[in-house]
Design a protein around this nucleic acid. Structure first.
Length: 565
RNA sequence: CGGGGCGUGGCGCAGCGGUAGCGCACCCGCUUUGGGAGCGGGGGGUCGCAGGUUCAAAUCCUGCCGCCCCGACCA
């Protein structure tokens, strides 16, 4: 390919809209053009990079025995009413009406479509297991698109759906996908961490995220020093410290005038936070609930939401707190049996707490569980933090920022039951099919790769997903000799299957060098008068400040070696 | 959806009541050719949209729209 055919235009000035590194570089290097918030066009070189990612994904998916399909982006709303997600999906499904006033939705994901496809064609255990996948456009009207390609509204996703007869089969399909994902990310040159994750709105019981560690990521993960444990913050567990004392003392009322925060209470009573029972009041789907946790920990709202089974959970407003009969700063579940109470199990690992007295300016001392208060729900609702003990006892957790590039879920029967995707087993019994679903954001993968692979000069992608692996630059193409040599080398490389760009633009060398580094071509070949004297070809790797000079006959081998083909 | 910021040639910005400017990019000519070239000439903007105030609005007022950032939310 020649640069003159590529719409290759780079920007010197950083577009003011872009904050994020990958976003800036994608714009500056001419990979993408923004069309609207969270909606992008791919320019020629960006599209080449994306095509390479798609190709890797396809090859690995096919290799693992998945069948590629293509499901429509535009779908009847009825399909979504069947699963019940027409009303519950967030952000709300984008939709429009056709000429017959029928509502069509723009698919944000394809569990329903995949389930519908499979239930029509699978009726026996003999048809299973099967995994289908597609690389397809989705649309989610995100409340806040951000970071260029990192979080967009219209996006391309590789989504796969597995169908099995039993848990064992599902586990196997799931493991195959995990392995396939590892291969995909490795071939894209990305070092990803696999973490336990919350399954969120998709549903299901087990889920893992593939996270690329990067400071710009909006995912927080906790990982043990030897990486034997890794989980998303939403899911992360830890070993809670035991501070309980042998002697259980008698409860007493103490005056704590204007002492209405944990900090003040700790100072005022001269006690560590682990001697305080902290209560936080939430609104869970309209119901006021009180969550109590030892004050050296904080509530993890995802865990709380899961334990309650609530759809919408938020901190109660101060008015709601008062209406429920609590006094802000002095609340606790003590003598409050009318309000649903959730207790973190850290409370059991302590005793003689100070807790709110549900009376202004007063706290209770030597409060003990379950002597002084009870709860219908007790479990883990604590947020893990850096320095806490890893749940598998492998040291202190470390907190890192990352970008979620893939996510796999064991869905079980949640879709197959409501949508009646059944099969007949060996005994002739009708059973729901067990499902798994598996996603990789294609565009996000490119953005993440740039976040992880760039320097002051620009993008520095691995050869496997760079728009071109080799950039051929002729210095002063007005000179016949240079021009001819360039054409000879260009043909040589093309004929040997090298993915080469010939920068045939009539521009000074400095501009071509800068563009080459900015766009992130891994290997550069330079043809110039200077090199004719030595009768060598100059070749330079993006990651090396020095050039090598080699003979023309060795060029192809040398390049292939350089990019590890 | 809450908070903040910004909309002026393709990009980055200045101008903030009185003839719309600068840098980069673009076009033409000459020179130049190893890290975003030099000189000369040139083209391009209903100043986001709609109202209003004024003799006069890019500039002041009102409303709307768009985009970015933080938060909420989120495969």
């Amino acid at each position: 390919m020649k640069a003159s055919n590529l719409l290759l235009k780079t920007l010197r000035d950083i577009p003011s809209d872009a904050e994020n590194i990958s976003h800036r570089l994608l714009l500056r290097a001419g990979y993408v053009q923004q069309v609207a918030a969270g909606i992008f066009s791919l320019l020629p070189i960006g599209n080449r990079s994306i095509s390479k990612i798609r190709k890797i994904v396809r090859e690995e998916m096919n290799l693992s025995g998945c069948a590629e399909v293509n499901m429509p982006v535009i779908q009847p709303k009825e399909l979504w009413e069947e699963s019940g997600r027409a009303e519950t999906f967030f952000p709300p499904l984008a939709n429009f009406k056709d000429r017959r006033e029928r509502t069509l939705v723009i698919a944000p994901t394809h569990e329903e479509t995949a389930t519908s496809m499979i239930r029509s064609f699978v009726s026996s255990y003999r048809d299973l297991p099967i995994t289908i996948y597609q690389i397809q456009t989705k649309f989610r009207d995100e409340t806040r698109p951000r970071g260029g390609l990192l979080r967009v509204r219209e996006f391309e996703m590789k989504d796969a759906y597995s169908f099995d007869v039993d848990e064992k089969g599902l586990d196997k399909s799931f493991e195959i996908m995990v392995k396939t994902y590892k291969n995909i990310f490795a071939r894209c040159g990305l070092d990803v961490v696999i973490v336990d994750a919350d399954s969120g709105g998709i549903g299901g019981k087990e889920s893992k995220e593939f996270v690329l560690i990067a400071d710009s990521g909006d995912d927080t993960i906790l990982i043990s020093p030897d990486e034997s444990y890794a989980a998303n913050l939403e899911k992360a567990e830890f070993i809670k410290t035991d501070y309980s004392e042998d002697k259980i003392l008698d409860k007493e009322l103490i005056e704590t005038k204007h002492i209405n925060t944990i900090e003040k209470l700790s100072d005022f009573c001269k006690i560590p936070k682990n001697k305080i029972a902290k209560s936080v009041i939430y609104n869970s789907d309209g119901e006021i609930i009180i969550a109590t946790i030892r004050a050296d920990y904080d509530v993890n709202e995802t865990k709380l939401r899961n334990i309650l089974g609530s759809k919408e959970l938020r901190i109660a407003s101060s008015q709601e707190v008062i209406n429920a009969g609590f006094i802000p700063g002095y609340a606790s579940p003590i003598n409050k049996s009318n309000v649903k109470s959730v207790i973190d199990n850290s409370i059991e690992l302590g005793s003689n707490y100070i807790a709110g007295a549900n009376k202004e300016h007063f706290h209770l001392k030597n409060v003990n569980y379950p002597r002084d208060f009870k709860s219908e729900i007790i479990g883990d609702i604590a947020e893990a933090k850096e320095g806490f003990q890893s749940p598998n006892n492998s040291g202190e957790l470390i907190s890192k920022k990352g970008i979620e590039v893939g996510h796999v879920f064991k869905l079980g029967c949640i879709y197959s039951e409501v949508m009646r995707a059944d099969f007949t087993d060996k005994n002739g019994d009708t059973k729901p099919i067990l499902m798994g679903c598996y996603g990789i954001g294609i565009g996000r993968l490119l953005a993440a790769a740039i976040e992880a692979n760039h320097d002051d000069n620009g993008i520095n992608l691995p050869p496997s997903i760079s728009p071109f692996t080799v950039n051929l630059i002729g210095i002063n193409l007005d000179e016949e000799k240079v021009k001819n040599k360039c054409n000879i080398i260009y043909d040589l490389l093309l004929n040997n299957g090298v993915d080469v760009l010939f920068d045939d633009r009539d521009l000074p060398p400095g501009v071509k060098f800068k563009d080459s580094d900015l766009a992130g071509f891994p290997v550069r070949i330079i043809i110039s008068k200077k090199n004719f004297e030595k009768n060598t070809i100059e070749i330079k790797s993006r990651n090396d400040s020095n050039s090598d000079y080699i003979s023309e006959t060795k060029l192809v081998d040398y390049i292939n070696n350089l990019i590890n083909i």
